[in-house]
Design a binder for these strands. Structure first.
Lengths: 189, 189
DNA sequence: ACCCCATATTCAACAAATTGATTAGGTGCG
DNA sequence: CGCACCTAATCAATTTGTTGAATATGGGGT
């Protein structure tokens, strides 16, 4: 039940509504914690019931009203306790890798090629968005300076992991594409 | 319900019992599809009911008997159909990254340092095991030769992704450790 | 003898995730 | 005026995943 902690961690970066959290998760958290909006809303309810977050309604004129959530002291305490427990190993579910594993049996190299290109394109998009976020965080400073002097490094370090992961995907899909392409060619000379 | 496909993909590499699959998942599949033994047994049941795999009992004298599963033609057809559908984006759950993200608020750099070292050690172990598997697959051939000439590339390519991922973790945790260590030092000169 | 470990599988209870739909006001476009 | 899209949230049903335990056999060590 650890989406709760991912939510608390996100709220530790500042208050947000469920909708805003959904977007935050989509753009910046998805590479280490995946969740749908429905999940977020449901768990925010429960966090509120447990007193780990507080909600207040913000009335808006040109948009629907929203409920903005803030982490409570109890929430911070829970996050701290979580931080001191050993972590579960990362859990992954990646359909494309399953397809690659079975690709020698399923034939159809064209389908995998197409999927690999789609995967690469998606990773490039994510990387580009991550790079924007990075530039915004750095504000012109170098990475070394930022990591040494800024008052906050957590979000930068996780962003860095996300960037590295997307770069890995770009490199790896390139190998997959090259491999399949070469093997499709009739072995000439 | 895609553990079914991960199971079919694993069985496409050859028949296996539930117990053997659990180990296969643990050592070679875990970096792209996580599942517990209980899940495997349960889904193997269902795959059998749906006619996608077949089981036969292998009597053993020095060990408990086991049920060995084989993919059926219907199973292969299902795997092919799966291969042609678009893939869902990868889903991740990584507690340690959540802790790093919140680390500026939770204080206690010692706890994160320790967790980072544990993570690095685990990745090194996994990488070492992956390297063994790789050497066994290559049988002395170079990677380039293998990818061009061998009759099977799927398992090698997924193994490659796993190796790259563990290497990423080693590199990234090194940065985390260096960052936290530097920031803990009293800023001298 | 005793205990622990590895093989091999199963059951049940509970918690969490996924899927799909629904409601509702506002904005921008043609 | 109608349509599509964005903000904002909620509901319900079903499928998956997690946790903990139980069972049975045999091998190795002290």
């Amino acid at each position: 039940m650890s989406l709760r902690h991912a939510l608390l961690a996100a709220l530790s970066q500042g208050e947000a509504s469920g909708y805003e959290l959904a977007k935050r998760f989509d753009v910046a958290v998805a590479d280490y914690w995946t969740a749908t909006p429905q999940q977020l809303y449901r768990d925010l309810e429960r966090l509120e019931q447990d007193g780990l977050v507080e909600a207040r309604v913000v009335e808006q004129t040109r948009r629907p009203n929203k409920r903005v959530f803030t982490m409570t002291d109890a929430g911070l305490a829970e996050l701290r306790a979580f931080g001191e427990r050993p972590s579960k190993p990362p859990a992954m579910r990646d359909e494309f890798l399953v397809k690659v594993q079975a690709s020698d049996r399923t034939g159809d190299p064209a389908a995998i090629l197409e999927a690999a290109r789609a995967r690469e394109a998606r990773s490039r998009e994510k990387l580009a968005r991550y790079d924007q976020l990075r530039d915004r965080l750095l504000e012109g400073r170098s990475e070394e300076d930022y990591l040494r002097d800024s008052d906050e490094v957590g979000p930068y370090l996780t962003l860095m992991a996300g960037r590295m992961y997307e770069q890995l995907n770009i490199d790896w899909t390139a190998t997959v594409i090259a491999t399949i392409t070469h093997r499709q060619e009739p072995a000439a000379g």
